[in-house]
Design a binder for these strands. Structure first.
Length: 479
RNA sequence: UGGGGCGUGGCCAAGUGGUAAGGCAACGGGUUUUGGUCCCGUGAUGCGUAGGUUCGAAUCCUGCCGCCCCAGCCA
């Protein structure tokens, strides 16, 4: 982190901003006799490096004079030599047990334009050379990186100590990277998902990127809470997705207004409810926060309920609607199913018939009788339509990186990670919800109004996360 | 077989000589007009393993075992 991290607009920093000072440091290294220009081919360098358990051999150019090195390096910069012809190498120790100390390459020739510096340079510093010095230039005190750079630390420190750097040196410290089940974190692999079209972009709601999580509807506070809970350590780890989802639910449970939406509509006709009558039912916006108030939801003779909330032949422990059974319509009435209308051809249930108890307005029976279930609903004539996108994990295995030799992580992609539902019916109050808003669809989950794909009158909702679903667990246990 | 790291319940993770925090998950129970929320309860005689030091060890010492990283002119 920068020592002076007062303003956010300081970031981001690029190593390419320091190419000139970096070059000057390289010159200084040469003058001190700690770096030399090497003419060996990449293959020769590779071979001469030796192996972890076998020392390497010194470059034939290791003994060049300071003057010659200076001259050659400057000419490397002016573009006199082709790619790969020469490199600048640190003069350390070809028999060091740590292979990164065996005269590592500091600069190589690349006649390529850079996305920040254009064609200013044809020599570019290697990571190890640029890293510590960039940190030093920026006044960084602690340079945090991942475990695989642990073996580079001696080189990081060697470079800083080899030069005349009066200020306090930055210190590199390594920690385990964050891994989460059912996803990948590698930028290189994420790039492939984008380039190969497995997702719709870096901000696809299934991506574990900040942009993706934001578009999914994960609140920043929930992500920070997640980070606080998992901690930072050196142990390789794989955090369960369930913890992240828990943090999201906990945050949204407090803040998200409750609404009713039917994703897979099933028409219900309430036979004894007067044709043409409409009642405004009062619903609370958030049982966790009474300051969020109440709203009115229109109720009428024909409503939609969730297909999942009706079963013609109910399985064990199923509490919802089925023929002869009474349930509560949230904030409305108790209704009893009297029958179904089926497609004569396919046998598919097209419509459910029911009768309501006029004495149960608001959902309570004066005689005190109980129902086992409360289901959500939407008045057919008042409902608005919307597209809803349901997301599952991007991969179907906990650790997509753990693929057998020769196989590719894309082969474990979850083909059902995105399900688009059109013609979903929402309570009318949802019409005024702006892009980027969050709400709970009662009993279903938390949803986010997609800022990019929503249009006036045609909202698109992304499912951020489902609610915990005990019924789903019971079902999976039965199977 | 060289070097560097890491091993505490299913998953994370505190603890750094004084007798194993916490969270998630799981399981049981209570409340409930969301099978949501909330509340209560249940787990390591044990900290990779074997010895040693100590009144006392997850913490100190030694051996062993396991896992990860390093031989790019990538980062």
């Amino acid at each position: 982190m920068p020592a002076d991290s007062s303003g956010q607009d300081l970031e981001p920093f690029y190593a390419s901003d320091y190419f000139e000072p970096l070059y000057q440091y390289a010159l200084q290294l040469i003058r001190k006799g700690k770096a030399y220009v090497c003419d060996h081919t990449p293959e020769e360098v590779d071979e001469m490096r030796g192996a972890p358990d076998r020392p390497g051999r010194e470059s034939a150019y290791r003994g060049r004079s300071v003057e010659e090195n200076l001259d050659l390096f400057q000419r490397m910069r002016t573009g006199e030599f082709p790619d790969g012809a020469r490199t600048l190498r640190a003069k350390i120790d070809m028999s060091a047990p740590n292979v990164w100390l065996r005269d590592p390459v500091l600069y190589r020739i690349r006649h390529a334009s850079h996305h920040h510096t254009g064609d200013c340079w044809c020599i570019y510093p290697m990571y190890d050379f640029a890293h510590g010095l960039s940190d030093y230039i920026e006044g960084i005190t602690h340079s945090i990186c991942t475990l695989e750079f642990e073996v580079h630390r001696p080189l990081y420190e060697w470079i800083l100590e080899a030069l005349e750097l009066p200020r306090v040196h930055p210190r590199q410290r390594e920690f385990a990277r964050l891994n989460v089940t059912y996803t990948i974190m590698s930028k290189r692999k994420l790039l492939r998902l984008v380039e190969e079209g497995h997702v719709r972009g870096w901000d696809d709601p299934r991506m574990p990127t900040i942009a993706g999580m934001r578009r999914r509807g994960y609140p920043a506070e929930a992500i920070r809470d997640f980070c606080d809970r998992i901690g930072v350590a050196k142990r390789e780890n794989m955090v369960q997705l369930a913890l992240l989802e828990h943090c999201v639910r906990e945050d949204l449970n407090r803040r998200a207004p409750r609404t009713m939406a039917v994703l897979r509509p099933l028409r219900v006709v309430i036979e004894n409810y007067p044709e043409g009558q409409v009642e405004e039912m009062e619903a609370v916006n958030n049982p966790e926060d009474s300051s969020m108030g109440t709203r009115r939801v229109p109720f009428s003779r024909v409503i939609y309920i969730e297909q999942d909330d009706f079963r013609e032949v109910p399985p064990p422990k199923y509490h919802r609607l089925s023929p002869g059974r009474e349930v509560r319509l949230r904030y409305a009435y108790l209704i009893t199913c009297t029958g179904v209308v089926k497609d004569p051809e396919t046998g598919e249930v097209l419509e459910v018939r029911a009768r309501y108890d006029p004495a149960t307005r608001g959902g309570n029976a004066p005689d005190g009788r109980k129902v086992k279930s409360t289901i959500h609903w939407v008045s057919a004539e008042h409902a608005i339509e919307a597209e809803v996108r349901l997301y599952e994990t991007l991969f179907e295995v906990e650790n997509p990186d753990d693929v057998p030799e020769g196989r590719d992580f894309t082969q474990t992609l979850n083909q059902a990670s995105l399900e688009v539902l059109r013609g979903c019916r929402l309570e009318p109050s949802l019409a005024t919800l702006g892009p980027g808003s969050r709400c709970q669809f009662e009993r279903l989950g938390y949803f986010f109004v997609d800022p990019d794909d929503s249009a006036p009158g045609a909202p698109v909702f992304n499912r951020t996360v489902t609610l915990k679903d005990t019924w789903a667990r019971i079902q999976s246990r039965q199977h």
